[in-house]
Simulated assay, not measured.
Amino acid sequence: MADAADTARTPVSPSAIEAGRWILDPAGSTVRVRHKTFWGLATVSGRFTAVNGEGEVLADGSARGSLTIDAASLDTRNPKRDAHLRNADFLDTDHHPEITVAVSGAVPGEGATVAVDGELTVLGRTRPLSFTARLTEATADTATLTADVEIDRTGFGMTWNRLGMMTGAAALTVTARFIRR
């Protein structure tokens, strides 16, 4: 016979996620970034270590919410590179300390997919953002979404590119674990 703790961990269908307020669990969430450099020969990888957010699941099963990333928390395991990424050539964290994702609609799709629409704000510039996330955990008290998103940094004014070393979009992998409030 299952006890109450086992029942709370039993996965439920995405449509069974109850309406209400949810908060991001920073300990169970990550935002990783990768970008090709040195003319595509090397990939710089890092992660933002400070992220928070909240959301609301509506009665129809759709959701909305926000994710806020501390731009200065980017860690690529190279302090000199991190300092450069925080300066005005890239994230300009002195003037723009946060990167935000405002989700206006997240609608369950087929299987464990979720269609997400909203806006991304970087360096004070807001652009539309749409992507498909995967529901990787769904219990009565937790829901975890994972998404791979490509971002064209030049659309936000990050045009530094010495000798054409940086090509293509930055790839972000976001794992957002929400807990029922």
Score class of each variant (00 low, 15 high):
2 A>T: 13
6 D>E: 09
8 A>Y: 02
15 S>R: 15
16 A>K: 15
17 I>K: 00
17 I>C: 07
18 E>K: 14
21 R>D: 05
23 I>P: 08
23 I>M: 10
26 P>F: 05
26 P>L: 14
28 G>L: 02
28 G>A: 11
29 S>V: 04
30 T>H: 12
31 V>F: 12
32 R>N: 13
33 V>K: 01
33 V>F: 07
39 W>F: 11
41 L>Y: 03
44 V>M: 00
48 F>E: 00
48 F>C: 01
50 A>V: 05
52 N>M: 12
53 G>Q: 01
56 E>F: 07
56 E>W: 01
57 V>E: 01
60 D>P: 14
60 D>N: 02
64 R>G: 06
65 G>W: 04
65 G>E: 12
66 S>G: 15
66 S>V: 15
67 L>H: 07
68 T>L: 08
69 I>R: 00
70 D>F: 06
71 A>T: 04
71 A>P: 05
75 D>V: 11
75 D>N: 04
75 D>Q: 04
77 R>V: 14
80 K>M: 13
85 L>I: 03
85 L>V: 00
90 F>T: 12
90 F>L: 00
90 F>V: 03
93 T>G: 00
96 H>W: 00
96 H>V: 03
98 E>V: 12
100 T>E: 13
100 T>H: 06
100 T>C: 08
106 A>R: 03
106 A>M: 09
107 V>H: 10
109 G>P: 02
109 G>W: 11
109 G>K: 03
115 A>H: 14
117 D>M: 14
120 L>D: 06
120 L>W: 06
122 V>D: 11
126 T>F: 00
129 L>F: 03
137 E>S: 06
138 A>V: 11
139 T>N: 09
139 T>Y: 02
142 T>S: 15
143 A>Y: 06
144 T>W: 01
144 T>R: 09
147 A>P: 13
148 D>M: 14
152 D>F: 02
152 D>E: 04
152 D>C: 04
158 M>G: 03
160 W>S: 01
162 R>P: 15
164 G>K: 11
166 M>L: 14
170 A>N: 02
170 A>R: 09
170 A>L: 14
175 T>I: 11
176 A>M: 11
